[in-house]
Design a protein around this nucleic acid. Structure first.
Lengths: 219, 219
DNA sequence: ACCATTTTGTTGTAATTACAACGGATTTAT
DNA sequence: ATAAATCCGTTGTAATTACAACAAAATGGT
């Protein structure tokens, strides 16, 4: 128990909670190790809150033709599932390991009786902040996906990266295929368009390093 | 004040709150009437929580070419802005009136001192449920938008409608142009594809009434 | 250093979609 | 009821993107 505590104490979910161990004792918590590409949550599964202790995860879905949609990337200390738990939704996507990973799986069902304790209140408040941020990043993805051309999608995405990193240069957390699947375009077409944009002097890049060379609106 | 109370007491945000008036006294609340097409929140605006008393709203964004992206539809009793408020984000979209509308605008900033009162706890908990549901519907929109063809987008969208209404027949809350902007496709192309799908016997529709005639996966 | 594997870029072609322009249908206002 | 305005469907053409197939580059393991 002490062990579990140490592994997840840093998570935003427990900010300001004075007695984390007591709070955790109201939850079902297990720590589990997964291998690269292993599935943690599948289509239609009941969702529990996941906290990434090491490694990273991807939430993805595939259509019947095999096209993959990368919904989000969850890095170290990242959290998945809060929205699902509190909206009582099953998963419409899969959560898979991008690399070997260690994950804390938290079931909060049995905690509802303890509802009004101060710590539970903080927990709920933290959860609210997390889901809200989550919500905003989905809005951001919606923004990219609703662009009417591939170039617009790319620009929208790169601008978001720039504003997150507050710099014109940054490393993406995506490889090309992942980036293509995130933007819902064909990988080779993405490569072609990126290279065209490089030729036109709009951007520079090498692998996952990118540099934006335009300012506001383009073309 | 009593007046304001009566207009928004039914909102999910106040479920289980024993003394709503006292809670509201910690907030800044105003009620405002808007005309069709009027803008309530603009790009980059600071966001307050909106509760729709009458009429309906759309959240939209436009790209520099004038393409409109309909992000979500907010009907009577609908709520906007909770995620923005708690994630401390400014708006990247506009909120406009789909029809004449009456809206409660709630600023919660000054309530933070009252943080641990029971009612505030319930309020936060309600907010969490709302944002979580919100989050799931954005995930749903992401799911539609990431389909690789227009037909797939349409099918994904109609299936979501079916499952929300638990019926193969339903009325959309969107006109064609709105539906096209929600799915990020051209309106006339959408009309053409819908009519092709009708010819193929996959669906039937007339204006905003739709009937799904397929079961699982198509073609 | 070498091979196997993975990742990325290139190109031509086929398929899809945007776009423009128009006509018909439906709704609203007077 | 009629005109005006809005909404919806149709069609042909131009532009974009997917797709397949392959080449080049980078990476990892031995």
């Amino acid at each position: 128990m002490k062990d579990i505590y140490n592994k997840i104490v840093d998570c935003q979910l427990f900010n300001g909670v004075s007695d984390i161990e007591r709070l955790l004792s109201n939850f079902d918590v297990i720590i589990k190790k997964y291998n690269k590409d292993e599935e943690i949550i599948g289509y239609g599964d009941n969702v529990k809150i996941l906290i990434v202790i090491s490694g990273s995860l991807l939430t993805v879905s595939e259509d019947w033709q095999g096209n993959r949609n990368v919904i989000s990337h969850i890095g170290k200390s990242g959290i998945f599932g809060v929205a699902h738990v509190f909206s009582n939704s099953r998963s419409t996507a899969r959560v898979v390991c991008e690399s070997d990973a260690e994950v804390a799986i938290i079931g909060i069902q049995k905690a509802y009786q303890d509802f009004l304790s101060q710590d539970y209140g903080k927990f709920i408040h933290n959860a609210l902040l997390i889901v809200s941020n989550n919500c905003i990043s989905f809005l951001e993805k919606v923004e990219h996906l609703s662009r009417r051309s591939m170039r617009e999608k790319i620009i929208s995405y790169l601008q978001a990266c720039r504003s997150k990193q507050s710099s014109d240069e940054f490393e993406l957390s995506f490889l090309r295929q992942d980036m293509a699947d995130y933007l819902a375009v064909d990988r080779s077409a993405l490569s072609a368009e990126l290279s065209k944009m490089k030729k036109e002097g709009l951007i520079d890049y090498k692998k996952s390093w990118f540099k934006i060379k335009f300012n506001g609106l383009i073309k």
